[in-house]
Design a protein around this nucleic acid. Sequence first.
DNA 1: TATCTAAATGAAATTTAGTTTCATTTAAAA
DNA 2: TTTTAAATGAAACTAAATTTCATTTAGATA
Lengths: 138, 138
Amino acid sequence: MDRVNEILRNIGKKCTEQRKLILQTLFELAKPVSADEVYEYLSETNKVGRTTVYRTLELFERKKLVRRIIFKDGIIRYESTHLKHHHHLICLSCGEVIPLEHCAIASLDGSVIEDADFLVTEHFLELYGYCKKCRGGK
Amino acid sequence: MDRVNEILRNIGKKCTEQRKLILQTLFELAKPVSADEVYEYLSETNKVGRTTVYRTLELFERKKLVRRIIFKDGIIRYESTHLKHHHHLICLSCGEVIPLEHCAIASLDGSVIEDADFLVTEHFLELYGYCKKCRGGK
DNA sequence: TATCTAAATGAAATTTAGTTTCATTTAAAA
DNA sequence: TTTTAAATGAAACTAAATTTCATTTAGATA
């Protein structure tokens, strides 16, 4: 929790109970989660309102504490940036999300696509398919 | 329009006026468009209801006439599969969407990620950054 | 060609994700 | 401690997408 306090102090915003809880949750879950999942996760103790969760995740995105991740379903999810840049394997059968450490196209960012004269600053890559379990050994 | 008729006959579903109009629209626009954009595009003649547009795009996706494309905003868009597999450059400033012909990671599909024992069947890659115009020559 | 029927349509109601409003509360500066 | 701008959260709202169900229609069958 000390770490959470320090991070929040560094972004130049008020260090509220709600923000600490939300950031802590993102650390604990350590995978892409939607605002509603964060809200549900915290709702037992019921200390944080839905609106605050949405607003706080947006703030965290602006401050680069989280990155936005979008899967095929179009729901906006966020993942803590203390996990370094990576992509995901998403099972089309059971929905499991597996982080993929190595990024084969990291070199794209900062480069210019010649034909289009386009400067790439970020990229989204998600891989879909079937996990070991769902393939039943095949 | 002959082409549209033939395609619809081949998927084993009724060849309705609405389906023909929607497929024709996807051919004409030839870029990722949302259900609402298709609806608006057709609304002058007002021949197709909103529900039908949503349902038809889902049908087309199941029949592989269109593929689903998701950008950062989370809105579900579709693009005709008569355009072969490719990705997009999306300008963070003006929103322009530029198709990117070459796919550097096409070889991923059908391959197994060893560490995770995961069979990849499809992938989503979108590149964000700044187009020539918005960079003002830089 | 007329009849029939399962499939398709679309208006309206509903659901879900996300945003805005505004009165109240609070972190932290003075 | 007082003060105040920032933050919160309930409720209202918006937008995207889905469901319901009465009506229409494509195209198979007689």
